[in-house]
Design a protein around this nucleic acid. Structure first.
Length: 280
DNA sequence: CGATTCCCCTGATAGC
DNA sequence: TGCTATCAGGGGAATC
C-alpha cells in the first residue's frame, strides 16, 4: 500500500516526466474517483508536483490535482499513449499494456504521452481543488517534524501507540507497514499506551521512524502487493521487512517467531521478545 | 474525549 | 465443480 516512501518515489519520478506538459484530454472511466470539473484542466500546463503525507498534488494551471492511492492505486507513465506497453506485467493489472481493466482515469498530454491511474479496489481518488489537499498534520520528512512535537503529541494520548502513528492528522505519511517496522526498530509493543512511553522510548521511536522511512525511500518503497513506480518497476523494501507481513517467521534481531494481532480493525506484527508490554 | 463498527471494493481463499 | 461466506485494508462517518 502506498505510504510516504512510495508516494515520494512516485513524485520524484513523475516530476521528471510531467513538468511542462500540457493536458490535452482526460478520460474518466470511473466517475466517483474524479472529484471536480476536469474541463478546468484542458490546455493547462503542469508546473509542480508536491506531496504531503500520502497525498500527491500536481499543479496544473492555477489548479491542484490531488491524488490519494489508498490501497491499490497505481500511477503509470507512458511516453506513447497509443501503445503503452511495459516490458513486465503490471502487478494485479494482469497486463503489460495500458489501459488495463483496472485503469479508471487517463490523463493525455499534448506530446502524445499519458498518465494512467489504475486502482483495482476503487478506494483511491483524484480531487481537483484550487490548493493542495489540506491536512494540518506535519509531514514526516518536514523540518517541522521534531522530537518536541512528536513527544507532545504522544503525551496527550492514552491510545495504543500504533493507532496514534497511523493518524494522518497528527503525523502524515505513516501507514501499517512502516508503523509496524518502526515500532520493532524501537523495541516498543504496538499496544503500549502512547502517554506511558518513557523519554528514552519516545526518542528511540522518533529515530526509528526516520531510519525506517529513510531506508524505505532509498529502496524506492515496498512492492508487497500493488505498488510499482511510474515506470512499472518494483521497490525493494519488501525484501527487508522487519516484522510486517512476517507472521511466524524469525525476528531479524533475536530469531523469535513474529506474532500477529488484530486491534481496531487492523493487523499488527511484532516480536514478542523484543517488544514487551509492562505486564506480560 | 475514545473505542468500535460499518462502509466503500474486488480478488483470493476456505468451507461445504 | 461451483457456490457462498469471509477477509484485507485507508480513511471517513456514524454510533455507543
Amino acid at each position: 500500500m502506498p505510504e510516504l516512501p512510495e508516494v515520494e518515489t512516485i513524485r520524484l519520478s513523475l516530476q521528471r516526466y510531467l513538468i511542462g506538459k500540457v493536458i490535452k484530454h482526460i478520460d474518466v472511466r470511473e466517475k466517483k474517483q474524479f472529484i471536480g470539473d476536469q474541463r478546468k484542466l484542458i490546455g493547462k500546463k503542469i508546473t509542480a508536483l508536491t506531496r504531503k503525507g500520502k497525498v500527491l498534488s500536481i499543479k496544473i494551471g492555477d489548479s491542484f490535482l490531488n491524488i490519494h492511492l489508498k490501497l491499490t492505486g497505481q500511477l503509470l507513465f507512458s511516453a506513447h499513449s497509443d501503445h503503452a506497453v511495459f516490458p513486465r506485467e503490471i502487478p494485479r493489472a494482469n497486463s503489460k499494456t495500458l489501459p488495463a481493466k483496472t485503469t479508471h482515469i487517463i490523463l493525455y498530454f499534448d506530446d502524445g504521452s499519458a498518465l494512467f491511474f489504475n486502482d483495482l479496489r476503487k478506494f483511491g481518488w483524484m480531487r481537483l481543488l484550487n490548493r493542495p489537499d489540506e491536512t494540518s498534520a506535519v509531514d514526516l520528512l518536514s523540518q517541522d517534524f521534531t522530537l518536541d512535537l512528536f513527544k507532545n503529541s504522544l503525551m496527550k494520548s492514552r491510545k495504543p501507540i500504533k493507532n496514534l502513528l497511523l493518524e494522518q492528522d497528527k503525523f502524515a505519511g505513516i501507514g501499517n507497514i512502516y508503523a509496524n517496522d518502526a515500532l520493532w526498530q524501537a523495541r516498543i509493543h504496538p499496544l503500549k499506551s502512547a502517554s506511558t512511553l518513557s523519554d528514552v522510548e519516545v526518542g528511540e521511536l522518533f529515530k526509528a521512524i526516520r531510519l525506517i522511512i529513510g531506508e524505505a525511500l532509498k529502496r524506492h518503497g515496498s512492492s508487497d502487493e500493488f505498488y510499482v513506480t511510474p515506470e512499472n518497476k518494483p521497490g525493494d523494501y519488501q525484501n527487508h521487512f522487519k516484522v510486517y507481513h512476517r507472521e511466524g517467521l524469525p525476528c531479524p534481531r533475536c530469531g523469535t517467531k513474529i506474532k500477529r494481532i488484530k486491534h481496531s480493525g487492523r493487523s499488527s506484527f511484532f516480536c514478542p521478545r523484543c517488544q514487551k508490554l509492562p505486564h506480560s
